[in-house]
């Protein structure tokens, strides 16, 4: 089948403004978007720049905006985007843009500096005050299950950059950092709950979440981030009352 890719291009060294470039290519419905991008880079235009690494949705490098929505280019097949007929020429272009609301370095590559700073803000590490036992700390399967979904996060920034609250205020911690906060607040082994709750209980923190569900829809690991954030909100309210 023939598909047109409309790709966001911007090279800071030569372009004053970003623009979109169309590439018409031959593709298979079972191709991943990243395969198509690789094809363009390898065969047509080597200047196309994007990040990628593992190619199966666990490293979190290739988050981008595909047909208006954030996703991992390696975890979506063309047929899932509606390009499913191998004999057709598709008129509707496949629009590929960098993650929204982030500074752009080049083409589809965005600047993650702030994203990592937010991640670090929520103290993403286990804090324990008591002496650890000789063997492993005990944790019931139920308690382990509580943080299983949250520990799936691959830090691809698809969620944080899809959140309208981040668009209106880039200092908002964002779903990814809040999910990481959940991961430790609800870890039965962690002993710094209060300290952590203080960090997220700020105007730029959890209260900018308006349950818009953009994060849930964007998450390539299908984590229900909003549910985790609602647990945090309840915990904060419980602490106040």
């Amino acid at each position: 089948m023939k598909v047109t890719l409309r790709i966001f291009r911007f090279n800071p060294e030569t372009d004053s403004k970003p623009y979109y470039k169309d590439y018409e290519i031959e593709a298979d419905p079972k191709d991943r978007v990243i395969d198509v991008l690789h094809y363009i880079k390898n065969e047509i235009d080597g200047t196309l720049t994007f990040r990628r690494s593992c190619l199966h949705g666990i490293c979190g490098s290739d988050g981008m905006r595909i047909n208006g929505k954030n996703m991992l280019a390696c975890s979506i097949l063309l047929q899932d985007l509606g390009y499913s007929d191998a004999n057709k020429t598709y008129k509707k272009p496949l629009v590929i843009e960098p993650l929204p609301g982030m500074p752009i370095i080049k083409d589809l590559v965005t600047d993650f500096t702030d994203f990592w700073k937010k991640y670090e803000t929520v103290k993403p590490y286990l804090i324990t005050k008591s002496q650890p036992p000789e063997r492993e700390r005990l944790q019931s399967p139920e308690d382990a299950e509580l943080i299983m979904e949250a520990s799936k996060c691959i830090l691809c920034a698809c969620c944080t950059t899809s959140c309208p609250s981040t668009w209106s205020n880039e200092d908002y911690l964002g779903p990814a950092a809040l999910l990481k906060a959940y991961r430790f607040i609800f870890d039965s082994r962690d002993e710094a709950t209060d300290e952590r709750l203080d960090i997220i209980d700020t105007p730029n923190g959890i209260w900018r979440c308006h349950t818009i569900f953009h994060c849930v829809q964007a998450c390539p690991k299908e984590i229900n981030i909003t549910w985790h954030i609602s647990q945090l909100k309840k915990k904060l309210v419980e602490r106040e009352i």
Binding site: P132, E134, P141, D187
Partner: peptide, 21 residues
């Protein structure tokens, strides 16, 4: 090494006894 990882906070799956599965 595994116990150390657990102490660092690695979220292992657990068995019924609460030990690392």
């Amino acid at each position: 090494a595994i116990i150390e990882l657990e102490h660092m906070g690695m979220p292992f799956s657990r068995n019924e006894k609460g030990l690392i599965a």
